[in-house]
Design a protein around this nucleic acid. Structure first.
Lengths: 248, 248
DNA sequence: ACAGAACCTTGACCCAAATCAAAAGCAGTC
DNA sequence: GACTGCTTTTGATTTGGGTCAAGGTTCTGT
């Protein structure tokens, strides 16, 4: 996969880490210079909350490093994760005052933030940025719909395989490689977080991971480090077409 | 609810039916005149397919009248509905060549189409339209995430109540009223379509509808016409906060 | 090294929803 | 009116994943 084809978040620029600067190749850097003056960084420790649903949220941001989750809860405590934020992902909604979801850091997290007002002003001035944001939002919508198929129709085993495949894909993409053959990486989520993402209980997650391990679909070193001997096999277990390209 | 507050699809204009012209109040009509020359109508009979996932799709469109569904399928035939298109809803993705989902008319359907190329040109020229489209896409994303909570964590009874509440809300919105108290409308979907939307089987849908009827949460005249004696009661059954504002 | 706290695994049992099966309602239409 | 082909309801049975419970691992701080 070339840098041109890499999933791009062209909202990064300036002193952001190398990968973000690299994908910036696709955008007009000049326009983004306007954001330099309103850009700032925030870091969070693992477990810290970035925003609570309903709170005032006066910034938009993208993840520089670490992992955050986006969750929804019902009054009785049932929770469903609705998004996983990996490096280069964007969070926040222009034109909305309050956060719609709980955003929580699951690892140490560094975010690159822009105050909302200047960001919106920039969007109005530069159609290119608005265009890019639309593209990103449409990608997220596709991912959400793919997830609806998973939540509504897949078995527990397929759900786990799908999640592992998605993490594998994202990990490969961060390394600017295409996902195939043998791969190794860490699961960035606890069993409970996986359960919340997949609409399962943590016990079922644990059991199905054990089953996939027993059947040789995945290998485990410790609780979190995974090796996938055959990515296509994993996709078959996930019930996916082997060409699926959704990302989060 | 005033016309100003009505959920707006400001992409309609000209000779579109009254409601769409009404909500056009929020947009600069002049800009949209550019689209008149590339606008055309297509009608479909109930059951007809608008697009197949993977097919070339050279237009974007919005629903004028009737109902369409957006579905995803796995190879073995399991299907999950990922969107319900009611009058004023938009479908199609600027910047993508092929359809990502099956779009099917479930009633007779009239769509207002724009060829993709001229539409994209207009978007580049008029930030206002791109802005509006971004807003709409973000709304759809919120709705999709709300649906993820439903699919992942709600019981069958809650799912049915949620679906009825959503249809009630949308119906009220088409009539420019706010959803409350006693309401009556037709379910635009078969039991099977509801099942595909909710991640259930059609038998479970039927049973839960019977149960809600028995418990006085809904009243049924025939198979499809529903009366809701108390909208708040319905929302409680749906497990929703009673202020939820998502739409589709 | 040890205590305590997370986090994870496994087992036994249970239940909500799926599956299998049959019949009833309903709309065309010949 | 009765034949045909839906859609819907209802019943009986099965089952995948939830719930409850007990241990085991790994990590952290002292």
């Amino acid at each position: 996969m070339s840098i041109q084809d890499a999933p791009s978040l062209s909202l990064h620029c300036g002193d952001c880490p190398i990968r973000h600067r690299a994908v910036c190749a696709r955008c007009e850097v000049d326009e983004l210079q306007h954001l330099e003056e309103v850009k700032y960084y925030r870091s969070f420790e693992a477990g810290q909350t970035v925003t609570w649903a309903g709170d005032k949220m006066d910034f938009v941001a993208s993840v520089v490093s670490g992992i955050a989750t986006l969750t929804q809860t019902m009054e009785d405590g049932r929770t469903q994760m609705v998004g996983l934020l990996l490096p280069s992902d964007f969070v926040g909604r222009p034109g909305r005052e309050t956060a719609a979801y709980n955003v929580t850091a699951t690892t140490d997290l560094l975010m690159c933030c822009f105050r909302k007002q200047p960001f919106e002003d920039l969007m109005l001035r530069t159609p290119h940025v608005a265009q890019r944001l639309l593209e990103m939002t449409l990608d997220e919508l596709d991912a959400a719909r793919e997830w609806m198929l998973l939540l509504g129709r897949k078995t527990a085993r397929e759900k786990i395989a799908s999640l592992v495949a998605i993490i594998a894909r994202r990990d490969a993409s961060l390394k600017l490689r295409s996902p195939q053959g043998r791969m190794a990486f860490d699961l960035p989520l606890t069993r409970e977080a996986m359960a919340d993402y997949l609409g399962l209980t943590l016990e079922t997650v644990s059991r199905q991971i054990s089953a996939l391990k027993r059947d040789g679909v995945i290998e485990l070193q410790g609780k979190r480090h995974v090796t996938i001997p055959d990515f296509d096999r994993l996709l078959t277990e996930a019930g996916d077409d082997n060409d699926g390209g959704y990302l989060a």
